[in-house]
């Protein structure tokens, strides 16, 4: 996996072996051009809080923003397997994070985003936008409905596909997390360079599926989010 060559001039600096260096997944072309060469530097205690975000104002949401299966309430549902994804957002000690914003985006049934920069040739679904938002409730819980996203070919020249995944962004107070949820038993996980970098921790990134009893939904997915590691909550204590 070590595919970096540190230029000699770097040796004059003070990089320590226990500092974390961001890794580049194999054949990840974007990462190969962007991931910093040097390890992340420690933050002195005196500057720590300045690195924690503080979001004291979040947008007001409209009704139905957490139902990605429709482009608006009352409109027809998009094609594909309807998912109801729900769970809690807590800190590392299990304390619920109330009123934080979860932003959600995923590709449609055929693996295409509605984003202007998606070069995929798969069809668009006129009933699917693929972007939604929800705020956690007083117990730190959230839920949103969406379509199970298709896999898509990201590197045609080497036939590499991305596993199905849902993008998630959490923001509010000093909580901040950018992540992706994956699906159980997806063989493409074994060849996804980003997912492979998680190692054993990758198990935390996979939602738990069950048959849904909710009308208009096929599959329930439980996905609990824990904000911690480099994403602590520090101003709310």
């Amino acid at each position: 996996m070590e595919n970096r060559v540190l230029p000699n001039f770097d040796l004059q600096f003070d990089e320590q072996p226990d500092w974390r260096r961001l890794e580049v997944g194999e054949t990840d072309l974007s990462a190969e051009a962007r991931v910093p060469l040097r390890s992340l530097r420690p933050i002195p205690e005196a500057a720590r809080t300045s690195f924690a975000p503080s979001v004291t104002r979040l947008p007001g949401l409209r009704a139905g923003e957490n139902d990605l299966t429709r482009i608006a309430p009352g409109r027809p549902q998009a094609e594909g397997v309807k998912l109801l994804v729900s769970g809690s957002i807590t800190d590392e000690n299990g304390r619920p994070l109330r009123g934080v914003l979860l932003e959600v985006w995923n590709a449609n049934k055929w693996g295409r985003y509605t984003h202007k920069d998606d070069p995929a040739v798969q069809q668009l679904d006129p009933n699917f936008l693929g972007y939604g938002r929800v705020l956690t409730d007083d117990d730190g819980r959230y839920s949103f409905a969406t379509i199970r996203p298709g896999s898509y070919l990201v590197r045609p020249e080497i036939d590499r596909w991305r596993p199905s995944h849902i993008h998630l962004s959490v923001r509010g107070g000093s909580s901040r997390l950018m992540t992706q949820m994956y699906f159980p038993n997806d063989p493409l996980l074994d060849i996804d360079p980003g997912f492979q970098l998680f190692g054993a921790a990758g198990a935390r990134q996979i939602g738990a599926e069950s048959v849904s009893r909710t009308e208009g939904i096929d599959t329930d997915i439980r996905f609990d989010i824990v904000i911690g590691g480099r994403n602590p909550t520090i101003f709310e204590d």
Binding site: W105, D117, D118, H167, M178, T179, Q180, F198, G202, G228
Partner: peptide, 23 residues
């Protein structure tokens, strides 16, 4: 004992519309 959700890349398709009135 680590139990936190891992960070992952934002990817190329974040929605500008999510910026709302963020300034």
């Amino acid at each position: 004992t680590e139990n936190y959700t891992c960070e992952d890349t934002v990817g190329p398709y974040y929605a500008p519309a999510f910026l709302d009135d963020d300034r």
